[in-house]
Amino acid sequence: MTDATGLAGPTPSPSPGIPLDARGVVTARRPVNWPRLIATLAVLAISAALAVSIGTNENLHWDIVGTYLFHPQILIGVVVTLQLSIASVAFAFCLGVLLAAMQQSKSPLLRIMAGFYVWFFRALPLVVQLILWFNLALLFPVLGLGIPGTPLFVGWDTNALITPFVAALLGLALHEAAYMAEIVRGGILSVPDGQTEAALSIGMTPGKALRRIVLPQAIRVIIPPVGNQFIMLLKASALVSIIGGGDLLTKAQNIYSLNYEVIALLIVASIWYMAIISITSTGQYFLEKRMSRSTRAATVQGGPAIRASAEV
């Protein structure tokens, strides 16, 4: 396909028959890669067929998509989806740090409890958890605090307290915290033991060493996967529509249950999801680039120590 110019260079060829260009670089023809060419043409053909069939489909009302794209209810749904995602990631991150700290603890009970939490919430499907939280009133009709054996009790009606939004927030955040705990633990383990030892040797308690020395370094390793989790959570937040969480998909479903424009409203929701995720992915890309740069600068320090012989 590509043709070699084959210009005779000013320097003579080192061996006869090998063409060099003016800079002395070998020029050669590239043979046609038939399998690749066929694959490319096939993919193009299928994509074109799909685009035509969707674009000319009369059952797909693009005008309705346009009408509902900025419908007030849809916009409220977008805001709720963002609120849910941001609030659950923030809550999950804090709980994740706590769980990771528990897993580092000297107390076996704390370690076991943290391990149990991570196991439990990773083993349970998110949908099941959402339904469970939504129906919490069936298990505990009243939620409150009291001292056993005394009349002291403050309580609230569970149905009034656990609104669909609260159930959605609890489900997403508690589920996500189990994954966050693993990410934070990985980050903590990525910081060499010598850092903790140095912090202890200048008189810090283990807790302060974790907060002031280990976590600020671990955060570089933690931030990129947390960004990833946020994007995954944003998509997973659509699951709350099954408990009427009031998110983007719930709103779209509410509208199409009245006007039966199912596909058009799903496309409206999809466009919003894709837009939000494109924006966050771009942010995530730049964040990761920044983080990897500072990590590279930080790891230079470890160099000389690696050569050192281990001494018991």
């Binding site: 060499p192 010598g194 850092q195 030892e197 140095a198 912090a199 040797s201 200048i202 020395i213 600020p216 370094q217 930080a298 790891t299 320090q301 470890g302 000389p304 120590a305 050192a308 001494e311």
Partner: peptide
């Protein structure tokens, strides 16, 4: 005070 073989300075 302790001085370590691998320095263990806080890189951040």
């Amino acid at each position: 005070g302790m001085v370590f073989q691998g320095f263990n300075l806080f890189p951040h």
